[in-house]
Design a protein around this nucleic acid. Sequence first.
DNA 1: CGAAAGATTAGCT
DNA 2: GCTAATCTTTCGA
Length: 198
Amino acid sequence: MQPSILQQDFYAQPALVVARELLGAVLVSRLDCGEVMRARIVQTEAYHQHDRACHAFGGRKTKRNAVLFEAGGVAYVYFVYGMHWMFNVVTGDCGTAEAVLIRAVVPVDGATTIARNRGFTSANPAPAVPERWLDGPAKLAQGLGLSGRHNGLVLDGSAAVWLQVGAPVADDRVRTGPRIGVDYAGADALLPWRFWLA
DNA sequence: CGAAAGATTAGCT
DNA sequence: GCTAATCTTTCGA
């Protein structure tokens, strides 16, 4: 195992800590054919079973959210709106549901493959700046080829997806605010659990 | 078994 | 700013 790959001791931390620390880290996806794509994380959101926006609110375990209750260090990938995959990393201890949603990344390696995955063509041109290629949770899952078959995979470098340590990010470059698309969570929708790079 | 809603996006007004 | 697209999961009867 390479030392730069984030391991279980990192993911065992609370989701709020991991969400902050993942800014600047590198998300890596490897296809069966061996092609590798890398992208730098610039926006995350934390979820915890104490909060109404979490799929496992109140500790409610279902078939879909079961991996949230595993020990930190596995992927939680689910399908929404009939068309989009969302990629999360599970954090914390076994038995408690916590996770961090990766909301936006910037391509580092594998731009050709990413462009193909995103379906860029002359009729559907790639954005001029790379920052716009994967600037949403569904876009980055599509671009990096992440989907339901990644659900539950360990992130230690032995499977098709993992994360690497990135350049340190100073606190003065970190912004926080309410999470996106969770209005149904009432007061919990106002929690400043979204983190992004200025 | 039926129904509703969803951690979004793209395209149009 | 508004809404269609699209379908799995979850919940109520």
